[in-house]
Nucleic acid binder design. Structure first.
Length: 581
RNA sequence: GUCCAUAUAGCUCAGUAGGAUAGAGUGUUUCCCUCCGAAGGAAAAGGUCGUGGGUUCGAUUCCCGCUAUGGACACCA
């Protein structure tokens, strides 16, 4: 157990020894530092429970705490706030323990197997701004979940089938009707694609518009979509080729973002499981015909919200997104037997997943013991508060967005210290750090505003600030020119040092909260607080010229702990740290 | 229409298992490199926590009404 949780447990024991029943004690960093470093607010709830004066209870607890040499500066303020600080000896021992093994400052959880579905990349088009958050947040959650001791399987779950495939094939067919893939007697011959990946950016929206304007086109798109599903040889082969083209492009962008998956599978991989979806639903008598389609009723009496039936098979017999989601569930259950499956998408898909989860549980497609969770994230809006668009009003490609920010950052940074052949790589790392960190700061499920200026900012609470400070710590440790691993903290001189220690003790709680909320803003805020506390300390104390050797050693050891913590947390967020910048 | 979110400093956002004086960045106005990397540090100013009630010793936090904004509401994903 981490040091801070250990301490809370000990306080809990002390409170219980007084005859009070309590399940948890929180050591809260005090809002009023003049009273002490930490506060305990438990006297209030105990006062209610035992109909006693909170001040009396606080005094009882305080009397016991005073017997423990780890605590100092104990006092009671207000109606019953218990204030306390920790002794220097305690901090010194705690910090040396953490320095020895940074991972000891994390509370591992009971191991579960968790599938995280956070890609949602669509084959018909390149990644766009809407994919940024799921990539950033999903990747970081994956890393956090692993760090806390779980087994994680990350799945990109490509949108590689469905109407978009029909759209693209329709448009290519109308442009290049003589391609071998469109021949009646297609025999599996090959022909080079007449399009490049960039063309998809234009083909899909164009076809989409045509279908919207003309019902006859839409009908043909539906038919083609069905035919691809059913394995029409020419269409299927052509679609396979387009998939390869698009996947390469998409993988390249994920790589730039330092995002990686264990499974690069797509919706189409679930097709072998579709018949089983239908038969399971039939067995449970859940399928009903409605307006030509086959649906499952998922409404419950307690529902206040609209809960339409879930369409499983369309009037033309084709599947929809939700059907494939159910089939994918069977596949995941059978192949991986997970404890939990998390779906990370835009908030707008919440209802669909609710429907799918219900159908999956009703039919037994997903086991009762498998925990299906939806974690939505907010929309990225432009400075006008509306969904982010290009100047022309279209959807912005993710790669373009990255380049745009990178260009802006290259104008602002000064990387003279970086060797010529590393400059490009460094600028790229700074760019990704800037974007990701800005993306993590708002709470996961809230909409937020993307402003190029803000996302290219190098100063203040930003990715570059964290990178710069971390690189500077590294540089200092190198210049100290000694065996950093074997240094120990033996002395504490300033208040700034203690504030850093308090923050370091807090790390396990931050990680636990972030995991609980599935949001990275806690970790991001924490990194800023830790780094800025260190920077304040750094500005006020000249470490390398310190003449007190014991103090100098302690300060270097402190620097090492902060550095290691930053590296660990930045890596958890999926942010890469350059050697120099 | 039904349901779900959201509303906190000029701007962008944190925060609350109900707790002491509501925080940060940015912007504005100042100050700090003869010394470890100034992408840094220090300071000032900036708030009726959308609005009206209720519960409570105590509400930005919980409950109800209202207003505003965004979103969802079967054969798209």
């Amino acid at each position: 157990m981490s040091i801070i949780r250990d301490l809370e447990q000990d306080i809990l024991k002390i409170v219980k020894s007084l005859g009070y029943d309590l399940d948890k004690v929180n050591l809260i960093p005090s809002g009023r530092k003049e009273f002490g470093e930490y506060q305990l607010n438990n006297a209030f709830s105990l006062a209610k429970q035992y109909h006693q004066n909170p001040k009396v209870i606080a005094e009882n607890i305080l009397n016991e705490l005073e017997k423990d040499s780890r605590f100092c500066g104990l006092n009671i303020a207000g109606a019953g706030f218990i204030n306390l600080s920790l002794s220097d000896e305690f901090y010194i021992e705690a910090m040396n323990t953490i320095k020895q093994d940074i991972l000891s400052n994390i509370d591992k959880q009971e191991k579960k197997r968790i599938i995280i579905d956070y890609g949602g990349a669509n084959i018909a088009k390149t990644l766009h701004v809407g994919h940024l958050r799921s990539a950033d947040i999903g990747e970081a959650l994956k890393r956090l979940t692993k760090l806390l001791g779980h087994e994680v399987i990350a799945d990109v779950h490509f949108g590689d089938i469905g109407r978009q495939s029909g759209m693209v094939i329709y448009e290519i067919k109308s442009r290049y009707p003589n391609l071998c893939y469109f021949k009646e007697d297609f025999q599996g011959e090959e022909e080079e694609l007449p399009i490049k990946v960039e063309d998809l950016q234009e083909i899909y929206p164009l076809a989409s518009q045509k279908a919207k304007d003309d019902e006859a086109v839409m009908e043909e798109v539906r038919t083609i979509t069905m035919q691809i599903e059913q394995g029409h040889p020419g269409y299927s082969r052509l679609w396979e080729k387009i998939k390869e083209l698009s996947k390469q492009d998409i993988k390249g962008i994920y790589k730039r973002l330092n995002v990686d998956f264990d499974l690069w599978e797509g919706e189409s991989d679930c097709y072998p499981y579709i018949p089983k979806v239908i038969s399971l639903l039939k067995e449970q008598n859940l399928l009903r015909e409605s307006e030509g389609a086959l649906v499952v009723d998922v409404k419950q009496e307690t529902d206040k919200e609209p809960m339409p039936p879930l369409v499983v098979l369309k009037t033309n017999g084709g599947t929809v997104y939700q059907t494939r989601e159910l089939a994918t569930l069977i596949s995941r259950e059978e192949r991986f037997n997970p404890d939990e499956i998390w779906y990370l998408t835009d908030n707008r898909q919440e209802l669909y997943f609710k429907q799918v989860f219900r159908a999956a549980k009703l039919s037994g497609i997903s086991k009762d013991t498998t925990n299906l969770e939806f974690f939505g994230f907010g929309t990225m809006n432009g400075p006008d508060g509306k969904p982010f668009k290009t100047r022309a009003g279209g959807v912005m490609n993710l790669a373009d967005l990255l380049d745009m920010v990178k260009q802006e950052i290259e104008k602002r940074i000064n990387i003279d210290m970086v060797a010529e052949d590393k400059k490009e790589e460094t600028a790229e790392k700074i760019t990704i750090a800037t974007i990701k960190y800005a993306d993590f700061l708002p709470f996961r499920s809230k909409d937020f505003i993307f402003d190029v200026n803000k996302f290219s900012d190098l100063e203040g609470k930003t990715g570059p600030y964290l990178l710069y400070s971390t690189v500077r710590m590294k540089s200092l440790l190198t210049k100290a020119n000694c065996d950093i691993e074997n240094l120990h903290i033996t002395k504490i001189k300033t208040q700034e040092e203690k504030e850093i220690f308090q923050l370091l003790l807090r790390m396990p709680i931050i990680l636990e909260n972030a995991f609980q909320e599935k949001s990275l803003n806690d970790i991001s805020e924490y990194l800023y607080k830790l780094t800025s506390s260190y920077n304040k300390f750094y500005a006020e104390n000249h470490i390398l010229t310190c003449e007190d050797n014991a103090l100098k050693e302690s300060w270097l050891a402190l620097t090492k702990i902060v550095y290691d913590t930053n590296i660990l947390l930045l890596d958890t967020l999926g942010i890469m740290v350059p050697e120099k910048m």
